[in-house]
Design a protein around this nucleic acid. Structure first.
Lengths: 215, 215
DNA sequence: TTCATTGGAGAGTGTCACTATCCAATCATG
DNA sequence: CATGATTGGATAGTGACACTCTCCAATGAA
């Protein structure tokens, strides 16, 4: 497959594909001659994943590169590859680096994870993981704005998250090879986020209608 | 409260506050003299909400302005104000405007909402609402990438969303005045998104560890 | 032969959320 | 009352980011 064909089939402009190649988001094609390379279906698949990460997941290009690197790191076992790849995904932008109310937030998050007995799993739970940091930041924002975020307030969200994780991993286990599973885990984590958030808003509107309208 | 004081108390620079005033995200202060205005606690609260929307929720400035306008529109009843305000919030960026697989996605979403009997509630469910559009886009991305997104695959997420909405509205109902409730609905919708997504990733890591590691 | 395409690299674009600079009017202080 | 800081207001500049454009010599296809 030539570059132009890859572009046509993926709907991504050749300029952008060249850019992704330059940035290392897409492995170079097989060199046919000095000025020509051939691409295959794996490039097409990877290109689609990159678009999903960047366009749907709003993952910065630099971060996407890390995620993809973890995806291909054969030196790691299945669980660790998955943890690193998903862990490299970004969360919300962090707030002011100054630490106003961050202590309370951290304490709340720690109490929540303890309550759930989520402390022992080292990966992506520990204070070093991105998800943990994002969670502390998010709770910190709630604290600063005086919105409820006690452990008891957060618990229902954690329970929902636990159920969602089971569903997610069930989807992942539909894939056969470990490689496909890791890629699916990354893609589904990112791609189901807008699904979940939209459904939540729709459900909120329904629930609001149920509570606040007469008739 | 002077501008400098508002800046100090909120941790937002005077330059940024001036920018928000210019952009209409913050109502002008009470004019004291020709060159001086006074701000009060409502400005502080609003400023915090704006920061939450923009920094945590990644809401574009123009969108934030719409959300805030709906927040203050006294001509609407409670439920509609809430629906419009939350509806004005953005979802993920939409993919290529061309409609590849969009029909299948729309069909899937419609089937899902029908299955759940979520069709009758007009607000934020209808095809016109932003959340609906975001959902179709997100499902479209799944379709294009060949990831599972049948109605049965989406149902668990919708059920989780329904439970979350109940929790959300319970939090909202802790506030007394309708104004406070609408503001809380917007703030909590946005601020709990990163909370939920981080918890999901942490839960995924735990679940992955449970399934894929030995011992 | 001739013209389009390729890989490669650098520079330019558009968007967006600020941020910096200026200005004249006016307080606040000594 | 002198003097320096602050304010509202306006305009222009910044930095990050994801492209996108332009150019080039080498090559391939018609």
């Amino acid at each position: 497959m030539k570059l132009a064909e890859l572009s046509e089939r993926s709907g991504v402009s050749t300029a952008t594909i060249k850019y992704y190649l330059r940035e290392g988001l897409l492995p170079p094609g097989r060199r046919v001659t000095a000025t020509r390379s051939a691409y295959d279906d794996s490039h097409l698949q990877r290109l689609r994943l990159v678009r999903a990460l960047i366009q749907v997941g709003r993952v910065p290009v630099a971060t996407a590169r890390e995620v993809l690197a973890a995806l291909e790191d054969d030196s790691l076992d299945h669980h660790h590859r998955l943890g690193i790849a998903v862990g490299a995904l970004p969360g919300a932008a962090e707030p002011d680096p100054g630490a106003p109310a961050a202590d309370l937030a951290r304490h709340t998050v720690d109490a929540l994870l303890s309550r759930l007995n989520w402390r022992e799993g080292a990966h992506a739970c520990g204070p070093g993981s991105p998800a943990y940091g994002t969670l502390v930041d998010a709770v910190g924002a709630l604290v600063r704005l005086n919105y409820p975020c006690a452990v008891d307030d957060l618990l229902p969200y954690a329970r929902a998250a636990a159920e969602l994780a089971v569903t997610d991993l069930d989807l992942v286990e539909r894939y056969d090879s470990p490689d496909a599973q890791v890629e699916a885990a990354v893609a589904l984590t990112v791609l189901y986020e807008p699904v979940l958030l939209s459904l939540r808003r729709i459900a909120e509107a329904r629930e609001s209608g149920r509570r606040f309208t007469s008739g």
